[in-house]
C-alpha cells in the first residue's frame, strides 16, 4: 500500500509541465485563436517528446506506460489549455484501439501522422472530426456533428471521462493560480485585494475542492488501469469531483478578476471555457451522479471504513 507516485512518474509530469510552459504560453493560445486553432509544429513537438506513444505497448512501438502516467500528463495538458487533440488521440483512442485489437492505426498514432478522436454515443459532437462544423464556446475546440456509427463501448466512455477529469484538475489549478496572481497585483482601498479575507476565503475554498478532487482522479486512473469491477464507479466519482472543483474555481476566478475577468483581454476565459466544455463532455454531471448513485445507494460497491480500496 503506497498511494504515491514514483520518482519517474513525477519526473515525467514535471518535464511535460515545463515543456508546455515553455512552448505553449498564453501568446500561443491567442495566436491559435486568431489563426486556425491548430499548428503542426506544436503537434510535432508533442510527438517528439514521445507523448503519442505513452499508452501504446512497447511491442507496437510505444512507451508501454499506464493510465496513471497518462492521467498525470492529461493534468498538464489541462494546465496548459492545450488545443491539439493529444489526450483524445493518445490517452483515449489509443488504449481503446489496443484493447479492441485494432492495431492497424497504432503506428500512425505513435509517429504522429494520425490524430484519432473517437466518437462515442454519449457525446452529441465529435471533437476534431470531419463532418459539418459545430461551434463550441471554447474557441480552440473544433467540433463536428456526431457520426452515425459512434461507439457505445463503456470502456471508451470511461477512458474519455477519466481523461476529462484529469484535464479539469489541471484547468482548475491554472485558474486558481491566475486568480491568486491577480489578487496579489490588483490594489484597491490601499492594499492588494488578496489581503481581504473576502477574497482569501473564496480562493482557499477552491484549493480545498481541487486538492480533494485530485486523489480521486488518481484512484480512478489506478482502478481503470487494473480493470476492477468498480472501475466505472471510481471514474464517475473522479469526473464529478473534478467537474465540481473546476466549475467552482472558474466562477471564483472570474469573480476575483472583477470586470477584467469579463474581458477577452484577460487570459482566464480560455481555461474557463475549456472547463465548461469538459464538464459536460464524456458524460454529464447527471450521468455520473446516476452511475455513482447506482453503486452507492444501489449497493453494488461495498462501502464503509474498511472499504477505502474495496
Amino acid at each position: 500500500m503506497d498511494f504515491r507516485f514514483t520518482d519517474d512518474q513525477l519526473l515525467l509530469a514535471t518535464s511535460v509541465r515545463e515543456y508546455l510552459a515553455g512552448t505553449h504560453g498564453t501568446q500561443v493560445l491567442r495566436r491559435l485563436d486568431e489563426q486556425g486553432n491548430r499548428d503542426p509544429a506544436i503537434w510535432q513537438g508533442l510527438v517528439d517528446m514521445g507523448l503519442t506513444g505513452v499508452l501504446v505497448p512497447e511491442a507496437l512501438g510505444g512507451l508501454g506506460m499506464g493510465l496513471v502516467e497518462a492521467a498525470l500528463i492529461a493534468v498538464e495538458c489541462g494546465r496548459a489549455c492545450l488545443a491539439e487533440p493529444l489526450v483524445d488521440t493518445a490517452f483515449v483512442a489509443a488504449p481503446w484501439l489496443v484493447r479492441e485489437g485494432r492495431t492497424d492505426a497504432i503506428a500512425g498514432i505513435v509517429d504522429g501522422s494520425r490524430k484519432i478522436v473517437p466518437a462515442h454515443a454519449i457525446n452529441p459532437w465529435l471533437a476534431d472530426g470531419e463532418g459539418a462544423r459545430l461551434q463550441s464556446v471554447d474557441p480552440l475546440r473544433n467540433l463536428t456533428t456526431a457520426p452515425h456509427d459512434a461507439s457505445e463501448d463503456p470502456y471508451l466512455l470511461d477512458l474519455g471521462a477519466l481523461m476529462s477529469a484529469a484535464q479539469l484538475v489541471g484547468i482548475a489549478d491554472a485558474m486558481l493560480e491566475q486568480a491568486t496572481d491577480y489578487a496579489k497585483l490588483r490594489s484597491q482601498f490601499g492594499q492588494p485585494i488578496g489581503a481581504f479575507q473576502a477574497i482569501k476565503h473564496q480562493l482557499a475554498s477552491c484549493m480545498v475542492a481541487i486538492e480533494f478532487a485530485r486523489p480521486v482522479v488518481w484512484r480512478a486512473a489506478a482502478a481503470l488501469q487494473a480493470g476492477g469491477a468498480h472501475a466505472a464507479t471510481h471514474v464517475s466519482h473522479a469526473k464529478l469531483a473534478a467537474t465540481d472543483a473546476a466549475m467552482l474555481t472558474a466562477e471564483t476566478a472570474i469573480q476575483v478578476h472583477g470586470a477584467m475577468g469579463y474581458t477577452y483581454e484577460v487570459d482566464l476565459h480560455f481555461w474557463m471555457k475549456r472547463a465548461w466544455a469538459l464538464s459536460g463532455a464524456w458524460g454529464s454531471r447527471a450521468f455520473h451522479v446516476r452511475r455513482l448513485d447506482e453503486a452507492v445507494i444501489g449497493g453494488t460497491i461495498p462501502i464503509g471504513p474498511e472499504h477505502t480500496f474495496a
Partner: peptide, 28 residues
C-alpha cells in the same frame, strides 16, 4: 437529499485517499 447522500460517500472516500497519500508522504 439523495444526491447529497451519494456525495457524502464520495467526499468521505476522497478524504481517505488524501490521508493515505499524506501517510505515505510522511513515511517517506
Amino acid at each position: 437529499a439523495r444526491e447529497a447522500v451519494v456525495q457524502a460517500w464520495g467526499a468521505a472516500q476522497a478524504y481517505a485517499y488524501n490521508t493515505y497519500g499524506v501517510a505515505a508522504k510522511i513515511m517517506a
